[in-house]
């Protein structure tokens, strides 16, 4: 067998093992977690005024082919995350064909038991979010542009969130994201084997803090628009 074929076979074997899929979940989850942090830091520039936010948006758009490469990479990451999750879920259901008549939980958190619910909800939210602010299909009046031909990110955000049902969807989605992250962030360490009694308490604290910051930071924007602070 050639070296390439051996590597390919080994990769397939890694993917086919439940443990391998968990590693894929963790690594893709970590990439998406970093993206969510970066995305929030970008968004928070709305508080620095229209010029700052629009300049940031223009800078991203001017990346051109690189922007599409990043988008492709993120799409691939999401696809792997969802595929691994779906296959694991299927495997897990098959492993327990008959359930218990009485079911109790000793320590498993609500968030940890509902990842399979929060995940698809977030996938739905991502599609809605792209149609809302990226393509403008769900934005009343479509995307607004600045005088120099760039997207007027600031005006679009204010326009989008001024419609209160959209803001409610975003706020609820961020709470769902919070649940997903509160379990996912520490889990991604565990699933690549990073669990040590000295560091695990700090990893848990980091996960909680990151979740709170991301949820609060993102929710603040629709709230600020609805409250008239950002207009």
């Amino acid at each position: 067998m050639s070296a390439a074929a051996a590597t390919w076979e080994r990769t397939i074997r890694f993917w086919e093992a439940s443990v391998g899929k968990k590693v894929v979940m963790a690594v893709t989850g970590a990439i998406l977690f970093l993206f969510v942090i970066g995305h929030m830091l970008g968004n928070l520039q709305i508080y620095l005024g229209p010029e700052q936010l629009n300049a940031y948006g223009a800078k991203l758009h001017d990346l051109g082919p690189l922007l599409w490469a990043i988008r492709g990479f993120l799409l691939l990451t999401v696809a792997l995350h969802i595929t691994a999750a779906a296959q694991l879920w299927w495997m897990n259901r098959a492993a327990r064909p008959t359930g218990y008549i009485r079911q109790s939980w000793v320590q498993a958190s609500f968030a940890s038991r509902t990842m399979i619910v929060s995940g698809p909800l977030l996938a739905g939210f991502i599609i809605y979010h792209l149609l809302h602010f990226t393509t403008g299909d769900f934005l009343s009046g479509g995307l607004a542009y600045t005088a120099d031909g760039h997207i007027d990110v600031y005006a679009n955000v204010v326009n989008g969130f001024s419609y209160w049902p959209a803001s409610v969807v975003y706020i609820l989605s961020m709470i769902v994201l919070g649940y997903h992250l509160s379990h996912g962030v520490w889990s991604m360490f565990q699933s690549v084997g990073l669990n040590h009694p000295r560091y695990m308490p700090w990893i848990r604290r980091f996960a909680t803090a990151a979740t709170v910051i991301i949820v609060a930071g993102n929710i603040s924007i629709p709230v600020a628009v609805l409250a008239g602070i950002v207009r």
Binding site: S18, L88, N92, A95, W105, A108, W186, L194, N195, M200
Partner: peptide, 25 residues
């Protein structure tokens, strides 16, 4: 045909021998 771990740690809570999920890691 065993399932996969979702890190909920319920196993650790019921284990009569207090095996920790650190072993899974």
């Amino acid at each position: 045909a065993f399932g996969a771990c979702t890190n909920i740690a319920e196993c650790e809570a019921v284990c009569p021998k207090d095996i920790k999920i650190e072993n899974i890691a």
